[in-house]
């Protein structure tokens, strides 16, 4: 980077500022003591944090989002682990096609997924049930978990598992004591990714949730349509802190560089 010409380095700095600006401005506005979003922010107080952290209007959706994220992550892992092991270790006919099918929800606009699922679930009387919400989120998160697991598991040779089998361990024992510990980095990275995606998802939650099951992004969206006060900035700051903490855990355990860029 230091070898790059000055204009290039200045340009990179400008783009980084552009990327950071809306995030930083929200954190700034959250600490205002004024009644409205004004610029520049006036005064310093924690009153808006106090408001949102004691207001059920925000805390119930935050809890819902958390539960939905955990449930989607767990379901995705249960579905993706056997699929990933089978794809790597067995001769799967038409492997590329099977994998393309399993990853295909990635390229579908979520609004289409949301409307189709609403039509479908409404026929079973599950139109806006928590189960429908979970199904919608799992469809979105499971391809990411599968892809992360495949990346980790494909790099591990079958020797250790074969040794365990030769020494008399059964199929399940081998899985539990050998395979699972070996794919733990993939499970952790895929799991956190799935949680973050579910935690951030809007389209499915907007169409399939009710006032009782509404998630944080959806409640923020409907709040913003009618209000424009620093409360949204405060709850957004809480959300940003949660995301950054998870990202730092991910970095420590796995290395974000390896997750987003191919390792050399």
């Amino acid at each position: 980077m230091n070898s790059l010409p000055l204009w290039h380095r200045l340009f990179v700095a400008a783009v980084v500022i552009f990327l950071a600006a809306p995030v930083l401005i929200i954190v700034g506005v959250a600490f205002t003591s004024a009644e409205f979003v004004t610029f520049p922010p006036r005064g310093f107080s924690l009153r808006w944090f106090e408001k949102v952290l004691t207001d059920a209007q925000f805390m119930v959706p935050l809890w819902n989002s958390f539960l939905l994220g955990v449930a989607s992550t767990a379901t995705s892992i249960v579905l993706a682990v056997p699929a990933a092991i089978t794809l790597v270790r067995n001769q799967v006919p038409m492997k590329d096609a099977v994998l393309a099918f399993m990853l295909s929800p990635l390229s579908l606009p979520t609004i289409i997924l949301a409307t189709s699922l609403l039509f479908f679930l409404a026929r079973f009387g599950l139109g806006t049930s928590p189960v429908g919400l979970l199904i919608g989120h799992v469809i979105i998160t499971v391809p990411y978990v599968l892809r992360t697991l495949l990346g980790v598991y494909a790099g591990i040779g079958p020797e250790t598992e074969e040794a365990a089998r030769t020494l008399g361990a059964g199929r399940w024992r081998t899985f539990w004591h050998v395979t699972l510990p070996m794919i733990r980095p993939g499970l952790l990275a895929g799991g956190i990714l799935a949680f973050l995606l579910s935690f951030d998802e809007v389209a499915v939650a907007l169409l399939l949730s009710t006032t009782d099951t509404t998630t944080l992004p959806v409640s923020l969206l409907s709040y913003l349509v009618y209000n424009y006060d620093p409360a949204v900035a405060a709850i957004s700051t809480v959300q940003i802190v949660i995301v950054v903490v998870l990202l730092l855990i991910l970095e420590r355990c796995f290395g974000v560089n390896h997750l987003v860029l191919p390792s050399k």
Partner: peptide
């Protein structure tokens, strides 16, 4: 920014 919710970023 990729992980900050789209609603939050749009609000920003």
């Amino acid at each position: 920014p990729l992980l900050v919710n789209v609603v939050v970023r749009s609000f920003g």
